[in-house]
Amino acid sequence: VRQSSMKSCTLLTFLVLFSGYCMAGTVYVNHGADWLGSVNISCFEGVRQSPINIDTSHVRRDIDKSVTVYPSNITNPSVVYAEGELKVSNTGSYATLHQDEEDRNYTLSNFHFHAPSEHAVNGKFYDLEMHNVFSRVEGNMTYYMVVGILFELTSKQDNYTLLSNLQIDSLTLESYSTYARTTTLDYHGFLSEVNGKAKYNYPGSLTTANCSENVEWFVTKDPMKINGDQLYYFTRLWQQNSNFASGSGNNRALQPLKSRQIYLTHGDDDETFVITTIILICLIALSLGAIIGLCIYIIADSQNEGGEGKQHHSSRKESKEHSYVPEDEELEGHHRDNHHKKKKKDKDDLYEESKHEESLE
């Protein structure tokens, strides 16, 4: 009996510890450092764990990979409020991953929230992160694709109807349950805006136990803005709730990047930037062309004027050269003219004298 009791105690102790390890998968007191147990082995021995710090100085552009979400509005959603989790399940939306000229379709499993953000960009955490979890089954394997949307606090009073209609502000703290909502979530309008944004992409894992490493991650490059009232919907549950993880939030600690490469997929803002850049380059080229053309015209015109001046000067010089008579020749000619005049005068005088003599006779 004693041996049986000891075995029972040992078994009971093991079950308590094991159940504690399993339950620890949803506890954020140590932000995932205490997610133990054989089912969570990837959390500690994995080579491509999430979340990570996105160091933009090591990011490469990838124009061949993109994700497009085809969202549908959600009518009468069920909001699951559990420890460390606020989740909305839906199967009416899907997304397409385009890579290497091949498209793969994923179905939306759920979307949920973390405050503060799980991913960091250049060491900076954001106020909120929304995970849109898509999945596809291939054989015996389930593959995930998560579109992470970062939010940053703003002083503007714009509201997202998607967040308002979740009615999170009416939840009672630690009253974990599933709540039915008789509203429509504008998931279509909200996610359509995200489609046009550039995103960081890398291979990773789930950020909750069991940390499965079969996830393709896309995290928005530019955060969306959220006002203080809507942000408080989430922070009051976790980050500002001293009864939950000492008020430190429901985000897993950052994981090492190791040998993985982070890419940046293009977005509509990149296309706008490219088009604007091309237009500016064309305008600059036209301006430079006009300036160069004007300079060529001025130089050519000045050369023409210089040529005409030289030609005119040459003509004048040539004219002077043709009309110029050396001084000696000019004097000789002058004496010759005087000699002819004197000779003619002498003849005239002789003629007059002869006529006078004849008249006297």
Rank of each mutant, 00 (worst) to 15 (best):
N73E: 09
E85V: 09
D55K: 08
I54C: 03
R61T: 12
V88D: 06
G84F: 03
V69N: 05
E83P: 02
L86Q: 05
V59K: 04
P77T: 14
V88W: 00
S57P: 00
S66F: 01
V67L: 08
A82M: 14
S66W: 00
S57G: 04
N76W: 07
S57Y: 01
R61A: 10
P51G: 04
I63P: 00
D55N: 14
H58K: 15
S57F: 02
I63F: 12
P51M: 03
E85Y: 07
V59D: 04
G84N: 06
I74T: 03
V79M: 14
P77F: 02
K87L: 13
R60Y: 07
S78L: 15
I74A: 01
R60W: 03
P51Y: 05
T56V: 11
S72F: 05
N76V: 09
I52P: 02
P71A: 14
G84H: 05
N73W: 02
K87V: 13
R61P: 00
S72C: 12
L86A: 02
V79F: 08
D55T: 09
P51D: 07
H58D: 13
S66H: 07
I54V: 12
S57N: 11
P71K: 06
D62T: 05
P51K: 03
V69G: 01
A82P: 01
V80K: 14
S78C: 12
V59Q: 02
D62Y: 02
L86G: 05
S89V: 07
P77N: 12
P77R: 07
I52E: 03
E85Q: 13
L86I: 15
R61D: 09
V69L: 10
V69R: 03
S66I: 04
P51E: 04
Y70K: 10
K87F: 00
P51C: 00
E83D: 11
P51W: 04
I54Q: 01
D64L: 10
V69E: 02
D64G: 07
V67Y: 00
N76L: 08
S50T: 07
A82C: 09
T56R: 10
P71R: 06
V88N: 06
